[in-house]
């Protein structure tokens, strides 16, 4: 980098023919420099603006209710009770279910794509799974509400209950819509994302490492578990963080299938709500200043969580990239 810029400076000073035009040309350069820097700065300013705007919008609810807003779970706009805890709980639960499923599945699919499938099949299957990421989230919601939730209610949930009896986690009427279904749909939505990154980090591993494992007589699974995964674990963790950020803020698909009930139930079959689904359902109707402010407060909580996750993810990925550069 340094070297290139000195080259450029030389080019400008050496060329004698251009010295006459230099002042005007330089000023044009400065104007354009400022213009493009201004455009780039918008990105930085937007993050601050979003944060400040949500803090401003939610100041009323924090002023009136204080920390009760975060500690209580009752949410009743009619009586003016606003507790973020039930939505926060729903966001956390659906995200945990989604990641618990998406992480092992994406590892398995990446294993299939990298170690097992012939290149042509890997391209087709990999492409199909990547296309899952291009489907708009409202479509997942439609499909989830009209097809996946009934399927859960008729087949999967009764089956689970037959095995677990009245175990609290799986108790209650099998309605289809609820936390579990929302978590599963979320898992399907982050799966393509997570798989793509996992596949790429698997592929970037130097082949000699795998090959030496195979040469020692290890099976494919042993090579994956003892060599590939330990070697690429940083990338997998980075992918997990990025998927976590996606799952936390996913709105439309969750809104369709979570059931939109403000409560904290022990059962995964029970309906609930996430921060994003509460916002999607109620924001346009909120006419009371306190109600609107409470929704802005929910938004602020979600923003702070996703910002933290993103910052950690980016720092982690940056550290990973530098680490790899150092090793090579």
């Amino acid at each position: 980098m340094e070297k290139q810029s000195t080259n450029m400076d030389q080019a400008e000073t050496i060329n004698p023919e251009l010295t006459g035009a230099q002042p005007r040309r330089l000023s044009m350069d400065i104007v354009i420099h400022i213009a493009v820097a201004g455009c780039a700065l918008i990105v930085l300013l937007l993050i601050f603006a979003i944060f400040i705007e949500l803090v401003r919008g939610s100041s009323l609810v924090f002023h009136r209710l204080g920390l009760d807003f975060l500690a209580k779970s009752q949410w009743n706009p009619v009586t003016g009770e606003f507790g973020a805890l039930s939505s926060l709980f729903g966001t956390a639960m659906t995200t945990v279910i989604a990641l618990a499923l998406a992480i092992p599945l994406s590892l398995a699919i990446a294993l299939f794509l990298v170690e097992m499938a012939p290149p042509k099949i890997a391209t087709i299957v990999g492409g199909a799974i990547e296309l899952l990421a291009a489907i708009p989230s409202i479509i997942y919601g439609m499909w989830g509400l009209f097809f996946f939730a009934p399927f859960m209610a008729d087949r999967v949930q009764p089956l689970i209950q037959r095995f677990t009896g009245q175990f609290p986690l799986f108790s209650g009427p099998p309605m289809g819509i609820g936390m579990l279904t929302a978590g599963l749909v979320l898992a399907l939505m982050v799966l393509p994302f997570m798989t793509a990154i996992t596949r790429d980090v698997f592929r970037m591993m130097p082949p000699v490492l795998r090959e030496s494992g195979f040469a020692l007589g290890a099976t494919t699974f042993e090579v994956t578990r003892k060599i590939t995964i330990p070697h690429t674990i940083r990338g997998i963790i980075g992918a997990t963080f990025l998927s976590l950020g996606r799952a936390l803020g996913e709105t439309m698909a969750v809104t369709f299938v979570i059931g939109n009930d403000h409560g904290i139930a022990a059962s995964l079959f029970a309906p609930g709500s996430s921060i994003a689904s509460t916002l999607a359902n109620e924001f346009a109707e909120a006419s009371e200043p306190l109600y609107l402010s409470a929704l802005m407060g929910l938004g602020l909580v979600l923003l702070v969580i996703t910002l933290l996750v993103q910052v950690v993810a980016q720092l982690w990925l940056g550290w990973m990239r530098r680490g790899r550069g150092g090793n090579a």
Binding site: I50, L54, T251, L279, M296, L303, T306
Partner: peptide
């Protein structure tokens, strides 16, 4: 890029 799109809507 990672900020949920619904937050952008509220903003």
């Amino acid at each position: 890029m990672g900020v949920p799109s619904i937050i952008i809507g509220i903003f």
